[in-house]
Write a protein that binds this DNA or RNA. Sequence first.
DNA 1: TTTAAATTGATACATAGTCTCATTCAGAGT
DNA 2: ACTCTGAATGAGACTATGTATCAATTTAAA
Lengths: 146, 146
Amino acid sequence: MSDHRERLKLAGYKLTKARLAVLQVIEHADGHVTSADVLDGVALVDPAVGRASVFRTLDLLTRLSIVRPTYIGTSATPYYVLLPGGHHHHIICTVCSRVIEFAECGLENIAILLEERLKVKLTGHLLEFYGQCADCQDKIAVNNED
Amino acid sequence: MSDHRERLKLAGYKLTKARLAVLQVIEHADGHVTSADVLDGVALVDPAVGRASVFRTLDLLTRLSIVRPTYIGTSATPYYVLLPGGHHHHIICTVCSRVIEFAECGLENIAILLEERLKVKLTGHLLEFYGQCADCQDKIAVNNED
DNA sequence: TTTAAATTGATACATAGTCTCATTCAGAGT
DNA sequence: ACTCTGAATGAGACTATGTATCAATTTAAA
């Protein structure tokens, strides 16, 4: 947890109140948070922190692969997911927008392969599957029965 | 290509001018397009198509896993990527926002495993790696030399 | 051709995110 | 502890992205 703070420091960024507040909010909200959620949370944790700084921090955390914005449902605003250990994996139901997380990915080998071949340095990844969850398949099946 | 049109039909959606225009624009713009790009493109292809329909169609294509919005760089607006064959894979440089695409993913096995275990029906996926491209690693190395 | 439901375009609107700039603050050096 | 400097901030006006409404049109099936 507090190693996120470590990462900021190591990368040469100051541990300001604004950044600490945003980190605290995101870490405590396990799962997927919108910028609005973060704004609300920060307003409680430290009301002195301004709007712009929240957005600036979300950008920064994204650049450091601590967090990753992703598009869920029809919402126009991104959801930010923590990338603990640099990665995250989930399934998004394209009907009801439910998010189902899962652990395994077995992508280490591909990562190493890509690093060698493309001379890139990889710090994280996100794997998203799209489809229909069990409930939504049932609904569709029922609808098609008439 | 025109099997996207097929997919719309099969899913019970009408092939309207607005939808055809959006599809045409996205298919011809190989790579990553913002909604602004699509709006501009559609204005050329069929000026009668309205703003709202473009957004509605982007939503629809997302729900059908024909396209997937993803956040690149600090841009607040998503880039839409085609998911040909239902999937897409790329590396995003967190420094310069360059996007490097790659082909392999070897995720079929995981997909099958997840479908069985979670009773979901998967129609597509997106795999994103984050890190620094070759050029940006060089720049950082140079900066640290003084 | 007729018809009904789906879809649309226009436009006004809401909201998310950005920019600017004077002020403050974190943290390194002493 | 004190000072100093550039990094970071907050306020708030501003821009632009996406949404809602609704009468009018269009698709496609009968």
